[in-house]
Write a protein that binds this DNA or RNA. Structure first.
Lengths: 157, 157
DNA sequence: TATTGTTATACTCTATAACTATA
DNA sequence: TATAGTTATAGAGTATAACAATA
């Protein structure tokens, strides 16, 4: 029984007024914007956000294991498999056997992997600077500090 | 040709040191924590994040159309269909015909929808306060301001 | 028994393209 | 021809459960 109703405002004031009171909502919107942009940047380099993130960690922490990679990325072990597969098939990292534990692999980036990672990191910083244009330098620093504090309260310990 | 390597550090210092220089990475981690928590809160009320968001907007802006809902949520029109379906089947909103445009629907929340939305909003604020525990009041306000600024630079105009 | 890597699977969110009925 | 809603489909990210090999 649909009933007719008066005209709908063609220009909406702030339909998500209530949602904007929630930090998680604003966080989601900002996240979505930055992730879409980052994904586009990485696509040109043949990477996705997850593969780039894994590559960066392997570059900076050679010979870590897949389970440690999973822990660092806060994801399940099982999901690292396909990511590491992709990086290995692209010759960006290697799976090396660990001497005294034949269950595990030590992951290490190749020279090409390190080069691509540096390239990607630079491109991401460049694009991020554009995305953060609405904020001045102090605000950017504040935002980083606040987000890091939120992230489990993990300081450099 | 996997080659053995020395022992792997059992306690990792900061394997994502490089990633943490990127705002989008810290943003993603904070986003993920808050979204997981919000999803759990809403699950108890039979809602998901997307259905709650849509419900909140319909409650606050009665008789808006699906395409306006899509715009408000920054999502594609097609993805609102299943969301509105779910809300309608749960008797939380209604699809009403618009008088002078038989293509469109005017969405309106039911009394039960408004009640549930208020309940959910309150529960979310309560849980969010816990998630934001690492931040003091000023920092919480700052974070909101910064995230809103990031979100397209849309002020209240 | 516990752990490492793996496979299979499923669910959520999002995007694109093509369709229908109206305008 | 353009728009509102719809359908179908696909991709990416994430999660759970169960398994083999090894510790």
């Amino acid at each position: 029984m649909p009933r007719a109703f008066a005209s709908v405002p063609t220009r909406l004031g702030a339909p998500d007024r209530r949602l904007r009171q929630l930090t998680s909502y604003s966080l989601k919107r900002a996240y979505h914007r930055l992730q879409s942009d980052a994904a586009r940047v990485l696509e040109d380099l043949g990477l996705r956000i997850t593969t780039y993130s894994a590559l960066a960690i392997v570059c900076d922490m050679p010979d870590l294991r897949q389970s440690q990679l999973a822990e660092a990325l806060s994801m399940e072990r099982s999901n690292t498999v396909v990511i590491v597969d992709a990086l290995e098939q692209a010759d960006l990292i290697e799976r090396r056997r660990v001497e005294h534990d034949r269950r595990a692999y030590a992951l290490r980036a190749t020279a090409a992997g390190r080069r691509l990672c540096d390239q990607a990191t630079e491109a991401l910083h460049r694009h991020e600077a554009e995305m953060l244009a609405p904020l001045n330098d102090k605000e950017r620093g504040d935002l980083m500090d606040l987000l890091r504090k939120l992230d489990g309260g993990v300081d450099g310990s």
